[in-house]
Amino acid sequence: MTLMSLDRLTVLRGECPVVDDVNLTVEKGDFIGLLGPNGAGKTTLMRGALGLVKTTGASSILDIKPAARAHHVAWLPQSREIAWPIDVETIVSLGRIPHGSQKLITNTDRAVVDRAIKRLDLTGFEHRIATRLSGGEQARVLIARALAQDTPLILADEVTAGLDPAHQISVMQIFQNLAAEGKGIVASIHDLGLAARHCTRLVLMHQGKLVADGAPTDVLTPENVKQVFGVESYFVQTDHGPIFQPVGIVR
C-alpha cells in the first residue's frame, strides 16, 4: 500500500528550485534513507511533502484534510526543540495531541506512550526533566514523541546526528523494525554506512533533483557517490553485512 506519493514536487526559493521536480513513492514496509550533501534539498523535500512550505506539483499528504494529516504522518524536525523544562513522559505524550484532548489521557494513549518510551530505551527517564538530558538523550525523547503519534508514516530529519554509535544503531534498528511491522519511514541521514546497512531503500538527492532511488547497492555506486558527494568510496558485502566507507576526496 502506498503511504505517500510525490508527483513532480517542486519547491522554489525565489527563482531557484530547492527541490526540483521530484517523484517519489513510499510503500508500507519501506525504510528509506534520504541521502545527499548539505543543501541538496532533503529537508525541504520532506517539509514540502508535509505542506510546511509552499510547493508546486502534488504530494498525496496534502490531499488529506489538514486535521487528519497528523494521524497519517509524524514529522521529526532537525532542530531538536524542547522549549520548557518538562519531564520526559509528558514530552512523549505530546505525541498524543492529534488523537484528542491531552487532558484526559486514555488507556490506549498510556499504552502507546509507554511502548514508545520502552522502544527508545528511556525506561527510568520518565520523570527526568527533558531539557537537562544530554543532546543524544533529548533526540531519543523526541523520537519517542513521534512514535507516540502512532502514524503509518514517519518523516525524520537527521535523526541519528549527535547520537553515540550504540544509539545510532539502535535508532536505525527501531526504524527497521517499524518498517517490518508495516510502517513507512523516510529519514534523511548523513552517515552513508549506517544507511547502507539498515535502510531497505535509498534515495539520493543532488542540487534539488532526485538522482537515484533503489536498493543500497544500486544507489551507492562508486560513480554516484563520486558525482554527488565528491568522495571515493569502498563498499563490500561481508559476513557482518554491507560495509560502506568513504575513503577520500575526489581531486
Binding site: A70, V73, W75, P77, E81, I97, P98, R145
Partner: peptide, 21 residues
C-alpha cells in the same frame, strides 16, 4: 490555546505537523 501551546513546546514545525493550525 492550551493544546497548541503544549505542542509548540516542540517548535512550530512539529506543532504544525501535529495538526496545530
Amino acid at each position: 490555546l492550551g493544546r497548541s501551546m503544549d505542542a509548540l513546546t516542540l517548535g512550530e514545525d512539529a506543532a504544525e505537523s501535529m495538526g496545530i493550525h
